[in-house]
Write a protein that binds this DNA or RNA. Structure first.
Lengths: 236, 236
DNA sequence: TTTACTATATGATATAAATCATATATACAG
DNA sequence: CTGTATATATGATTTATATCATATAGTAAA
């Protein structure tokens, strides 16, 4: 399975708001995109593997990608799910270290590939980008540390509820306003919460019976967000 | 209990290697330290609380500090232990958000306080410092994400072993080469590994009986680092 | 010193969640 | 379309670790 080239989207017109690069001027975006590539990744396809050396930066044009780490027993922990405008692999790139996690497309995705050279040139010359990157990292670090506390101190039910709320926050809902705009397997939801597949299925099934959510195959509707929020025990 | 002023150490002569500021020139260090303060914190004293607003940056001149978050049941999770040359609270400062964790001195410490203004001025003008900060954040994020995988997938025994190896790596040993150069309570070790105090005591006691470590009150000697490393199951 | 508090220690019991087992439904490659 | 693999579902059992209980040893304060 090889990723195939596509009509190149222009960084200058990139619709993606909120990414690190949103602060760049049209000119800088043009520089950044000079020798970039854009590839199509089919659902399930791996973008990079844990252990690989990074040679550039990925930026999701359209799609969704899970970032996961493999434990020694082969169990997967999903560290984060990235969507439109999110960048992948910049931590390893910045540290000049091999990737410490694997990136896999969880739906058909178009992902741009920016040259390491251009990115560093821009980072060195553009202080706003630099400060933006710092803020992005600081925010992600905060989130990761919070997740650590959650996972050690919350019950499975709380964690699953929290994952659902996070997914709603990040990817929103379909036009109906209640169906999550992301389809994950039960295993993937469990891998996010650090829970086995069976327990995840049971927990979701419970929430379904309690009519807090409604499950229709891989589509999950959040019927009572307030109650789910309360179960998740989210403070901030 | 109030922290008391002290003879001001000079940033220019600061012995601390390896911190973010190690890249700065003598001149820049002078600028950074212009209106800084230096305070003494007694063991147990809190430097800042979760929820407080940051107005500057802390830099440990000498001592050790634990960074912890309080779960809703009052259980503490130690996110990190910082030592000489480490900076505290820059994540919140950079994001312009309240502190998301509490910093407490775990031994008598001298800690410098740098003005937010100077730090940002320098960050905006000095690109090396900027890139250094990015690298620091990227490395910490990596570590935090690894810790997340560890804590969900490793057994208590593995986690405790890992904490001991981490402490050895970060703080080293006393001149004898085996006694950890940091004294923590069993509770604190447990709070690092996400384990109850009782289970931590039992686990350390087991390792002691197996003669992998030797416990003498709060002093822990690593007798068989290789074996401990193997138990910790550390990959990278 | 005596008192009080906190940390360490260890046993007994409870329990949340993992594991094992098996069945059915769904998705997908040929 | 059809067979095969994968995902969902649910029950039974096990187990690691938390919780509860109580005792002793340090440590700090009066």
């Amino acid at each position: 399975m090889k990723s195939s080239k596509l009509d190149m989207p222009n960084c200058e017109d990139c619709q993606n708001k909120g990414g690190v690069f949103s602060c760049l001027s049209k000119q800088d975006k043009a520089i950044l995109g000079e020798d970039k590539g854009n590839n199509f990744y089919k659902k399930g396809q791996v973008i990079f593997y844990e252990g690989n050396h990074p040679h550039g930066l990925y930026c999701i044009f359209n799609g969704k990608v899970k970032i996961s780490k493999l434990g020694d027993e082969g169990k997967e922990q999903i560290v984060r799910i990235s969507g439109n405008a999110d960048t992948l692999g910049y931590r390893s790139l910045l540290c000049n270290e091999p990737y410490k996690a694997t990136a896999t497309a969880i739906e058909d995705s178009y992902i741009c590939y920016l040259s390491k050279k251009k990115f560093f040139e821009l980072l060195e010359s553009n202080n706003t980008l630099c400060l933006n990157t710092i803020q992005l990292l600081a925010r992600e670090l905060r989130q990761s540390e919070q997740q650590l506390v959650d996972i050690t101190q919350k019950s499975v039910r709380e964690r699953i509820a929290e994952v659902l709320m996070q997914l709603k926050g990040k990817f929103g809902t379909k036009p109906d306003g209640i169906t999550l705009d992301i389809r994950l397997t039960r295993r993937e939801i469990g891998d996010m919460a650090g829970v086995t597949t069976e327990t995840t299925i049971r927990t979701l099934s419970d929430l379904n019976k309690e009519e807090i959510i409604h499950i229709n195959g891989k589509d999950i509707q959040i019927l009572k967000p307030d109650q789910l929020h309360r179960i998740a025990n989210i403070e901030d």
